[in-house]
């Protein structure tokens, strides 16, 4: 059994590249998580083929898509900034990302969701089953992403993270991009087919 001297981990742990382990684990998580969305996507095609109701609000669909892509852009700039210790630029871009993400969320939940049933797309039946489950699952991930980024933002404002230690920033922003990638597939499947 371990004695007090060998107990401190530094003595016996070989040195692993923590960052490489973290990144690998995070990508495995993304891979597993992407299957949730794949299942919803396949369900949409299994049940409704390539058909799509004409009533969906195309302007809104395009608008939220552009908003989310832009938020990925600002997120990229935020990560680049902290990697070069440019804190003001980091915080500015992160805040922009959070605002754009929130805007996307409001667009889906407060505009699209109340409007769709008025156009005959209800969550209980028909295309609405796919529409609401896909946007709902995605919005849930957007929400968690916004909360993560908010957490990182508050820490960053208090002076956390620097060019040689910003795994928290990197992971949250990678997650944000992941959520964006999902929408890259969901947007055409829901609005454009």
């Amino acid at each position: 059994m371990s004695t007090a001297t060998t107990h401190t981990s530094a003595v016996v742990h070989p040195e692993y590249d923590r960052l490489a382990l973290n990144r690998f684990g995070l990508w495995l998580f993304f891979f597993s998580e992407s299957l949730i969305f794949l299942i919803l996507l396949l369900t949409r095609f299994y049940l409704f083929g390539t058909s799509r109701p004409e009533e969906l609000n195309q302007t809104l669909g395009l608008a939220i898509t552009v908003i989310l892509l832009l938020s990925s852009f600002t997120a990229y700039r935020a990560e680049t900034a902290i990697a070069h210790d440019d804190r003001p630029q980091f915080l500015r871009n992160l805040l922009a990302t959070i605002l754009l993400g929130t805007l996307f969320l409001l667009g889906v939940v407060l505009v699209e969701w109340p409007e769709a049933p008025r156009l005959g797309i209800v969550p209980q039946e028909g295309f609405g089953i796919a529409f609401f489950s896909m946007t709902g699952m995605h919005a849930f991930h957007v929400l968690s992403g916004v909360l993560l980024l908010l957490m990182v933002y508050l820490n960053g404002r208090r002076g956390a993270y620097s060019s040689d230690s910003y795994w928290g920033v990197e992971a949250s922003i990678k997650y944000w991009h992941f959520v964006d990638v999902v929408w890259v597939f969901f947007y055409p499947a829901l609005y454009l087919l």
Binding site: D17, H177, V181, F185, L193
Partner: peptide, 28 residues
Amino acid sequence: LAVLALAKAALIVQYFMHVNQLWHKEGH
């Protein structure tokens, strides 16, 4: 649409998410 979506996703995964960090070892 599938091809276009794949192209967009590939761009994000490669340039924004730096997927190549997985096989090219580099720290921050």
